[in-house]
Simulated assay, not measured.
Amino acid sequence: MGTPSVAVLDYGSGNLRSAVRAVERAGADVTLTSDFDTALEADGLLVPGVGAYAACMAGLREIKGDRIIGRRLAGGRPVLGICVGMQILFARGVEHGVETDGCDEWPGVVERIQAPVVPHMGWNTVEAPEGTQLFAGVEGERFYFVHSYGVRDWTLQTNDRTKAPLVTWAEHGGDRFVAAVENGPLWATQFHPEKSGDAGAQLLRNWIATL
């Protein structure tokens, strides 16, 4: 079997050290890279992301990250998006009236959360669906969120032609948003597993176990 290899995609978005360390601790060999082939060939690809949607997409496109993600998924190769790294997988993001095209792996719009207090910052529980692999053993745990934007409406219709994605929800200030998605080789979380203590570590181990 050997140890699975994970590439953490470096496209100029934020502090990646904590993500690298967390994935290493969860049992993978980790390479921090912006190289097309390295990111393409690893057993798993982790796409982090902090900050503004438009800036993240610009950085991603600069290293052809959108093409790396698309090509990996076409070959059934696992990808995990975290925080803005999840948001950029949707069709578009709207921030301060500016619309930016995302990777369009899923339909949907990333928009400001409609809650009295934004950003949503701190620990929160999630509503994980029946059959989840990502949250196996940590369904009832709390995870660490820090974000002002999210996907508030899941619009993908599969009409039973393909297996419907498993969507996990969370709530903040009365507003519901997508907290995680499991969709074949493409998984993603709005929260930060690398900042979520033991629960986040178990979640990363669950992902690495699929590689």
Rank of each mutant, 00 (worst) to 15 (best):
G2R: 11
T3D: 04
D10G: 02
Y11F: 05
Y11R: 07
S13P: 02
N15P: 03
R17L: 15
R21W: 11
R25K: 15
G27I: 09
G27F: 13
S34D: 07
A42C: 05
L46R: 05
G51D: 04
Y53W: 00
A55P: 03
G59I: 03
G59N: 03
R61H: 13
I63C: 00
G65Q: 03
D66K: 02
G70D: 10
G75K: 08
G75F: 06
R77D: 11
P78H: 10
P78L: 13
V79E: 04
L80A: 05
L80T: 01
G81D: 06
M86V: 05
R92A: 12
R92H: 10
G93F: 02
V98F: 07
V98I: 10
E99Y: 00
T100R: 00
C103Q: 07
D104I: 03
E105P: 11
E105M: 15
W106L: 15
W106P: 06
W106Y: 12
P107G: 13
V110Q: 00
V110L: 08
E111K: 05
Q114C: 04
V118T: 03
H120L: 12
M121Y: 02
M121D: 05
V126A: 08
E127V: 09
P129G: 14
E130K: 14
E130A: 15
G137W: 01
R142Y: 14
Y144P: 06
H147D: 12
S148H: 11
V151W: 00
L156V: 08
R161L: 14
T162D: 14
K163Q: 06
K163T: 04
P165K: 07
F177Y: 10
Q190D: 11
F191R: 06
P193L: 06
S196W: 01
S196R: 08
G197S: 11
G197V: 05
G197K: 10
D198Q: 12
L203A: 05
L204K: 09
R205K: 12
R205D: 11
A209V: 01
L211P: 09
